[in-house]
Simulated scan of single mutants.
Amino acid sequence: MSKPFDMELFLASVLTGSHATRQRHLRQGTLIQVEIANRWQRETPWTWQRKHLAWFLEHRLNRHSEMPRYYYFLTVRLLARRLQKTWEFTL
């Protein structure tokens, strides 16, 4: 049996800001991870490609208003930074 992925440990090196901001990024990162795992069976961010995060931003958030989309966009940028990728995303 494998251990569940620990998003807090994964993002620890790139998280900054207030406690509330860090908690929001962790919540959103976990949700992103679950959605990608359900759609593509990619359990950890180390196996993700740019298309997985782009899919999340374009298709899973299409019914959200502008502010939640922006906050998820910031979390996606943190994930890309942690993966040391130069991926660009648009809102």
Rank of each mutant, 00 (worst) to 15 (best):
M1G: 13
S2K: 12
P4E: 10
F5A: 02
F5M: 01
M7C: 04
M7E: 00
M7K: 04
L9W: 00
F10L: 09
F10W: 03
A12P: 01
S13N: 11
S13C: 01
T16Y: 10
T16P: 01
G17P: 00
S18Y: 06
S18V: 06
H19L: 13
H19F: 10
H19D: 14
A20H: 11
A20E: 15
A20V: 13
R22T: 03
R22W: 06
Q23E: 15
H25N: 14
H25A: 13
R27M: 13
Q28A: 09
Q28L: 12
G29I: 08
G29P: 03
T30F: 03
T30V: 02
L31A: 15
I32G: 11
I32V: 10
Q33E: 09
Q33P: 01
V34K: 14
V34W: 07
E35I: 08
A37F: 03
N38D: 11
N38R: 14
N38E: 14
R39M: 04
Q41C: 12
Q41G: 08
R42D: 03
R42T: 06
E43R: 13
T44K: 11
W46F: 11
W46I: 08
W48T: 05
Q49I: 04
Q49A: 14
R50Y: 07
R50N: 07
K51Y: 13
K51D: 14
H52E: 13
H52G: 00
H52V: 01
L53S: 02
L53F: 09
A54D: 12
A54N: 05
W55Q: 05
F56H: 08
F56M: 04
F56T: 05
L57G: 07
L57Y: 00
L57W: 02
H59W: 10
H59F: 12
H59S: 12
H59T: 13
R60W: 08
R60H: 14
L61K: 05
N62D: 08
N62F: 11
R63C: 09
H64G: 04
S65N: 08
E66A: 15
E66Y: 06
R69A: 13
Y70R: 15
Y70E: 11
Y71N: 11
Y72E: 05
F73S: 06
F73M: 14
F73K: 03
T75C: 12
V76R: 04
R77N: 09
L78K: 05
L78R: 07
L79E: 02
L79Q: 01
A80T: 12
A80Y: 00
A80R: 07
A80N: 03
R82L: 04
R82N: 04
Q84F: 00
T86I: 02
W87P: 09
W87L: 08
W87E: 01
E88F: 08
E88C: 11
E88I: 12
F89I: 12
L91I: 07
L91H: 01
L91S: 14
L91P: 03
